[in-house]
Write a protein that binds this DNA or RNA. Structure first.
Lengths: 254, 254
DNA sequence: CGATGAGTTGAGAGCAATCAAGATGGGTGG
DNA sequence: CCACCCATCTTGATTGCTCTCAACTCATCG
């Protein structure tokens, strides 16, 4: 994959934001922590950023840190011998990256957009987890949510048609956008797709041609409008949802 | 679904096994607990059993207990409006059923074989989790393992051919069987399938006809032998694995 | 020994993948 | 500022895998 490099070529590392100003303060692993806990976390944390397209960790590589997504979108991807790939996770702000107690990464993690992370070296973080029950408790909650999302995803991959997959994907994005603004999605919604057609295909278990064709079909059927390569207008959220195959209430927000 | 009923029609409830004799003592949520912890758990626990085919919980139903699988196999299943179904979880002995802090079940849980559970009413269990960090810590570990398994499953559903799906499924079963005996699978392996063709289809995102056809094809190609409806002999585990599409080491045990 | 549920096999249709050109448009350099 | 470039995306033609519909076999059980 071609990567355009900034003046700073390697992922930049700097100690920056304090937890007080952190945009994910109340949604990340640290959400339940109190002032005292935060001090300890803050002393150990360091920031890192990656540009769109950069690989954050390669599958099989040793991984000595864990991190929270502060901004941007990253993907977890798995590959078969012959090169077929499937996305198996999509990391958004506040999501947790890495597994305490695990030495090597099982998936390749790639920055899909520009990404910034709040990192901790793994060992000290495991220490903190052992001494502060708020961390494992919150991580459990987040992992259970991720498992729910993965199960919704299994249904999508196993049983939905290409059209339903696209409709589901767009609905999921809309719900997520809305939830950032503490809203419930409805009516007309404008989105910017964080993923290329190829990445969408990897997410949905399709080819990029099929993704493109189905996007065109939804446009033809007046369910969406396309604004350039990445802009999409969902003309009517409820209508789109009815194309997704799910039952009415639309499942879980990631 | 037709269910043959025992003399005891409803799931039987009895206080039986002590934790000392429990076959899943060192693998379930309670794995890390010590004598004192176990006393409290033992005081609150009650057993329950279900026959093959019985529904344990319906999706959307209120669920006031959590449980560990003691024996048997159960499935988590999700359905779309029009009746298409996808299995989204397969519970084996020591697996945990239910989510602390959640009121209603998001999936239908069905006993695939006869099943026995070690149950706790949800509220008291949440209490114990809050006071005993070994429980949430172990549950986190188990949930992370389940998430890994779900991600392997995403790859299977999204990118594998019908033949590869069947080969993967049989390999997974073999690995699991072997791990119960603390072995590494290899060579010739005899299995009893816990699932019907239909349940396999639900697991693999296929139709039951396709499952049947691919089983026949593997038989024709001398990769497996069939012994009645449920018996399968994997003639050569390594050879079968090479048909599964995965890279050599074969991924994670559930 | 019919009835029943599970599994197998066959023929045909349909949906998404594959192979192959084009079109678009965001970014760069002249 | 415009024109070109190249990655990204779209569209078309064809193939092929899996689904669908249907008939049939097999084992089990009253």
């Amino acid at each position: 994959m071609h990567v355009k490099l900034n003046p700073v070529e390697r992922p930049s590392t700097q100690v920056t934001l304090s937890c007080d100003d952190c945009p994910i303060r109340y949604r990340a692993v640290c959400a339940n922590c109190e002032a005292g806990d935060l001090e300890r976390l803050e002393a150990a944390k360091y920031d890192r950023s990656y540009q769109a397209g950069q690989v954050i960790v390669w599958a099989g590589e040793r991984m000595d840190f864990v991190a929270s997504m502060v901004s941007g979108v990253a993907s977890l991807t798995q590959a078969l011998e012959d090169g077929r790939t499937q996305m198996v996770g999509l990391l958004l702000p506040s999501d947790f990256l890495g597994r305490p107690g695990r030495e090597t990464a099982p998936y390749t993690v790639t920055a899909v957009t520009d990404v910034s992370l709040c990192c901790f070296r793994r060992k000290p973080f495991e220490e903190m987890m052992a001494h502060n029950p708020r961390l494992p408790a919150r991580l459990l909650e987040m992992t259970l949510d991720e498992l729910d999302a993965a199960r919704e995803w299994l249904m999508l991959l196993g049983r939905k048609s290409a059209r339903e997959k696209i409709a589901s994907f767009l609905s999921i994005l809309a719900r997520r956008e809305a939830s950032l603004r503490h809203e419930r999605p409805s009516g007309e919604i404008e989105l910017t797709l964080p993923l290329t057609r190829e990445a969408m295909a990897d997410y949905l278990g399709l080819t990029l041609e099929t993704v493109s064709r189905q996007m065109s079909a939804l446009k033809r059927d007046k369910l969406i409008e396309l604004r350039g390569k990445r802009g999409v207008v969902l003309v009517d959220y409820e209508l789109l949802l009815s194309e997704s195959g799910d039952d009415a209430d639309g499942g879980l927000v990631h």
